[in-house]
Nucleic acid binder design. Structure first.
Lengths: 176, 176
DNA sequence: AGAATGATTAGATATTTATCAAATCAATAT
DNA sequence: ATATTGATTTGATAAATATCTAATCATTCT
């Protein structure tokens, strides 16, 4: 398991917090902590062993006792550090776009024009890839290209201009 | 429930950490996060609502969407702050002593001399309360007092000196 | 060596809770 | 008005785990 997540899981328990607070006051040992908290030594041991293997506490023997103590370094860490994901999953934005595109395009055709602005923009951006950068188109040419995707080329052409993907002047069109 | 513990519990889950990391990049909404993480919107909503009621995230409506965002204050807190117990249970040390004393003393008599050093010291400290501060005792007087607690006054007297609770010079004894 | 005692492990149990599908709510666009 | 769609709630289920008792281990004192 993720190391940070492991620590957070171990911190999410009342008993373990009580144990850590006891150790903040002074180093201690299983039976004493058990007695203080009115909990079985077996349970205390169970928690301490878990926290030890996560590097949160350490222990050493002294006479009869296993003396446990805090590993302070870990607790000085700012909370945000424990939360931050070291290996972020790749580009959530792209993943979302792919979902939308695969939903609205079937066999290269646009099955419907999304009502929602966000999704509509994604779909329009996909269609506009069929236009060349810098080239000037007549309205008829624009409609022919759009028509490959969807019957209602008028609506789509208008939308493209509305959301700023395409410019128009005197019946001449170009993409931006 | 304790407020801090509640936050720690909420942080101890992979999915919620993923959600928080998504929100660290940018504000987002249920469906998008669900899509990014390949998890049901119902589940994302469930987590967000929990975190919202703990004050970790906040949300507001925008068009179709409920836009969720981080409540940054909470995450700037140092980890140790979340762990520290604001209402410490009263004097674990005393509680432990009481346990030991009630175990070894029955009806005012010492039933046995503890083998373990720590417990022995507690018991001896209890017996020494019967001596007056600053007063000088003969060996016979010392033994008489100790004898009220236990037959083996010799051992106990010796132990008291060994662990520094009592001093002896030329057959004269006094406590410290 | 053997007795005493604190620590740990093993096995069993009960509680918590993350997740999903389906139903319902709420806001918006046509 | 009504259809659409994102958000939330509900009910059910499966997985994780804190806790206890009893048994075993390891160390120390006599």
């Amino acid at each position: 398991m993720n190391e940070k997540l492991e620590i957070l899981k171990l911190l999410a328990d009342k008993t373990r917090l009580d144990i850590l607070n006891a150790l903040m006051k002074e180093d201690s040992y299983v039976e004493k902590i058990a007695c203080d908290l009115s909990i079985t030594p077996a349970t205390i041991c169970y928690h301490l062993k878990k926290m030890e293997s996560a590097g949160m506490v350490k222990c050493s023997r002294s006479q009869f006792y296993m003396i446990y103590s805090l590993n302070k370094d870990i607790f000085d860490m700012p909370l945000i550090e424990l939360i931050k994901n070291d290996t972020p999953l790749d580009s959530s934005e792209d993943k979302y776009k792919k979902e939308v595109i695969s939903h609205f395009f079937k066999f290269g055709k646009l099955v419907s024009i999304p009502t929602q602005r966000k999704k509509r923009e994604i779909v329009l951006a996909e269609i506009i890839k069929s236009f060349e950068e810098g080239k000037i188109y007549s309205e008829k040419e624009v409609d022919e290209i759009i028509h490959k995707f969807h019957e209602d080329h008028c609506t789509i052409r208008r939308e493209m201009i509305a959301c700023g993907l395409m410019k128009r002047e005197n019946g001449r069109y170009w993409i931006i």
